[in-house]
Every structure is written in C-alpha cells, then in structure tokens.
Design a protein around this nucleic acid. Sequence first.
DNA 1: TTGAACTGTATAATTTATAATTACAGTTAG
DNA 2: CTAACTGTAATTATAAATTATACAGTTCAA
Lengths: 142, 142
Amino acid sequence: MNSEFPAAVHLLVYLAHSTSGSANSEELAENVGTHPARVRKMMRCLREQGWVGTREGIGGGYFLQAEPAAIRLADIYRASCCGGLRPKKPTGSPGSTCPVSSGISGAMDHYFGEAESRYLDYLDGVTVQDVLHRIVDPRPLP
Amino acid sequence: MNSEFPAAVHLLVYLAHSTSGSANSEELAENVGTHPARVRKMMRCLREQGWVGTREGIGGGYFLQAEPAAIRLADIYRASCCGGLRPKKPTGSPGSTCPVSSGISGAMDHYFGEAESRYLDYLDGVTVQDVLHRIVDPRPLP
DNA sequence: TTGAACTGTATAATTTATAATTACAGTTAG
DNA sequence: CTAACTGTAATTATAAATTATACAGTTCAA
C-alpha cells in the first residue's frame, strides 16, 4: 500500500482539529511531512468526495465541508487507494495449459476481494472523529 | 503488498495438484512465472513452516509435507509478508508539538492492526485445498 | 571418485513504484 | 496591479521489488 490513505486521513483529522478550521497547503504539508504540491493533489480527491472545500487566492486554503463523524475511513480508503491491498504482479499465466497456472490468479482475486471487504467492513465503523478522539482524548462525560 | 504471498500460495497449490507430488525450482518457476532462484528463496520460508520438504542433489526438488487442508492462507500470509498491508512511510512526525502530527501514526497503527486482523480472520478460513478446489472443480459428491 | 543435476544463499543489476520537486497558469483579495 | 494562494502537469530522485548471476554444498549413479 502507498501512503495516500493514511495521509488523507491525516489531512482530514488535522482540519477537524484545527481551531481556525482551515489551512493552506504549506501548513498541511509541514504537518504531514510531505510536499505542498502533493497535498494539493490529494486534496482534489477529498474535494471530489465533498469532504473539503477550497478557497483559491490570497488567504485561501482548505476547510472541512462535512462532519468529522460522518467521514468514514472505509470511504477515504476507497477514494484514495482502492485495491491497494493486492499485489501488482499476478502469479501464473492466464494462457497456460496448466489449470493451476491459468486459474490461480482468478482464484486469488476472489480471496483478496473477500479479505479486503472484511478489512473495509472494519474501517467502515471508524470515522475521522474517532481518530481525532483517539489522539486528543475526549473529556470524559460527566 | 508484494507478490510473495500469492506466489507462496501458488507454489503450495501446485505441489498439492501435482501427480508426482514433487517438482524442482525450474518447473515451479516456469509455472509461477518467475525465476528459479526466487522460488528457492521462497521455499526456505515454506520449509521453515514445515509445509514442504526439500531434496538436494540430482533428482531433487520440493514436495508437500503437510495436508493441503491443514495449510491456512492466513498462516502463509504471516510467514511470507506479514505487515504488508500497511504503508511503509508513516505520516506525521513523532517529535512534533502538534498532537495530530505526533499522534496520528500511532492511531493509524492501531486501526491498521485491527483491520489487518479482520483480513486475516477471513484468510484463516481458507486452506490450500480450498484454493485448489476452486481452480479444479471437485467432482460433486454423489 | 567423478561429474551432472540439483538446492542454498548472497549479491549485483534491472525494473517499477512512490514521492519530491519544479514550473507555471489560473484565482482572489486588497 | 500584485502578492498569496490553488490546480495541474511534467520531471527528477529515491526506494522497493524483481530478476539475474554466481558459486559453494549436496546427492546420485555410472
């Protein structure tokens, strides 16, 4: 897996935590530990999902447009690196006369799909708000 | 994820399917679509788990030493590429004064661990024999 | 007891994937 | 008009994965 998914979560959690509610690509890049251009690129994806809004020009930047409790990690995963749990290089060769060599790839696809779906079922139950709370402990309710 | 896990499954399924019950690294490499030296390297891992036996020298090669129905995909995964579902590059920086930047990595580790454990729970229910049967349909029982 | 057919293992070379960097056009506020 | 931003594409650098090469050790059989 590449680091797009955790970086996307980081960006959303940061915006959810920010008091001003917005940040520009330089501030975000420094916090994540990456390059502003990469932040801007990732933000396109988050904007397309309707999770963040953008303001161009002077004083511009990014801000949350959805409730942190409504943004699920499974959806961030799907938007940022879907299929990332499978190896790029398939094993075997489709044209082989050996049923194992020609069939293994399809069989593994099936198992990878099922396993990934369990992985996502779990992430479906975790929101940006949950991640933020795990980091900055919420005050225990009275 | 790299392709060690599916390749390891392929090797075991191939041996389980083989009529002679054994194969050398060249035959396996051709079937998998890789290099014999890589097969030999992967075989070390499978041998250490007790799943395959080795015979060196002339006429040598590899053979199954466990029941295909007793080899679980989750164990193959653990032996071949454990941790492969996480990104290599962590987001944020541990020393930051910002709680999000310093804490996000630990939080994500937690969620990745939980999600990966669901992934493995599923693979725990699949054996080499299941994979083989999915490829070469078992005769329907009378 | 020699040689051919293997495995075991290390390491170098190559390819591919990922991330960083650069560049510049477009937008906005003042 | 200009400075401070985003949007986007292209390029370069770095890291990871895979392939390839090499050779020592093992085994069998003539």
